[in-house]
Amino acid sequence: MSGNNWLKWLSAVSVMFAAMGAANAGQPINMPVGVTDISADVFDLHMIAFWLCVWIAVAVFGVMFYSIFAHRKSKGHTPATFHESTTVEAIWTTMPFLILIALAIPATTTLVAMEDTSDYDLTVKITGYQWLWHYEYIDEGVDFYSVLKTPRDQINGLAPKGDNYLLEVDKELVLPVDKKVRFLITANDVNHAWWVPDLAVKKDAIPGFINEAWAKVHTTGTYRGQCAELCGRDHGFMPIVVRVVEQAEFDQFLADNTTLLNDGAEYAAVAE
């Protein structure tokens, strides 16, 4: 293929990537930094790994593209005959190894921190059902179900879709700010996974198992997530909403909701 053709096609490819950029009318394209120290660490690790990959790619593909342009028959390049070099092989086996060690260190530190569920202030038991969540503040005696609130008409295109389409629930999980909250996660029918990106918490909810996770949110606000393990027909329709509030407001919430205990009756059939 002539150099001209190459340019034509390469520009087509660039136009394509430009189109992807242009399509980004303010829609998010990256992982959220989140609202806990852990989520920020995870984000940093993600970006370190990302840029590492980018630079390795630039270096490796740079050499490759140089070769593609310089060492071509149409330029009358005659082929060399070398096909071995133990030194070179040793270098490009060791180098990646060292880079990986450098990456493994922060990864290990973050992982160890994430798995440390000691010294918590509050425990919430989370149970996944087909297709809703149940929350229980174990020591406070408050529990309730949380179900998708988006009206059917919006899903079926009979009504305009709201801002939080598919990411809104009837009763939000309310948590106090700056407190270490431990989640005990399980399921009652099939596997689910409880995931809130801003908290960097994703843990499978598995019948017969109780998994642990935790979050200490440092900013009040509403954070949305979804079930992240295929759980059947309405897997796409069991969102999670966490509202993080000041301690006083949280206490008020608990006081107001001790009665919610019985409110779950309408879902009792599912719960059994």
């Binding site: 998010p28 990256n30 598919l166 979804q226 329709f237």
Partner: peptide, 18 residues
């Protein structure tokens, strides 16, 4: 990365363009 789970038939509005 922006948070769209796999294996879902419908999704939130911020994933629509891509």
């Amino acid at each position: 990365l922006a948070g769209m789970p796999r294996r879902i038939p419908d999704y939130a509005l911020q994933f629509s363009d891509y």
